[in-house]
Design a protein around this nucleic acid. Structure first.
Length: 122
DNA sequence: CCATTGACCGGCT
DNA sequence: TAGCCGGCCAATG
């Protein structure tokens, strides 16, 4: 498979994030894997930072592997993310989401149905 | 071209 | 449990 271009990577990541359902969260690494970018956790952060506003992505559903909010505690974006999560019934405790309870676990059907399943094709 | 920088991760104190 | 550390790898300057 040809190495993904910069734009392809961004699209895959944005598309994957858009698939995370309300009430669930995914880690940066998880999003990277599903997006077909192994060990690309840091790139997910990059992609979200550079996402155009009009994509209206549920970026708040992306957290660290251990459930922590990536932003600095107390910062504006931190509070914003917590507020949005609460609105969806996730309610982080002490800046951390209970991953055992809220981790997004897409089933095979869901993965195959989504555009992300076609990334291997020409 | 080389160095630094991240909305990260996992292992190990 | 909380940090620290090395690894990670495309983007930036």
């Amino acid at each position: 498979m040809q190495k993904a271009s910069r734009q392809q990577r961004l699209e895959r990541i944005w598309s994957t994030v858009a698939d995370i359902p309300a009430g669930k969260v995914a880690s940066y690494g998880q999003v990277a894997d599903i997006a077909g970018i192994p060990r690309g956790a840091r790139h997910v952060g990059y992609a979200l930072r550079h996402a155009p506003d009009d994509r209206k992505l549920p970026w708040h559903r992306v957290v660290q592997a251990g459930g922590g909010i990536a932003f600095e505690r107390g910062s504006a974006p931190f509070k914003k993310q917590v507020a949005r999560l609460k609105r969806e019934g996730v309610s982080p405790v002490n800046g951390k989401v209970d991953m055992g309870r809220h981790r997004w676990a897409p089933d095979l059907d869901e993965l195959l149905w989504k555009p992300s399943a076609r990334w291997d094709e020409p």
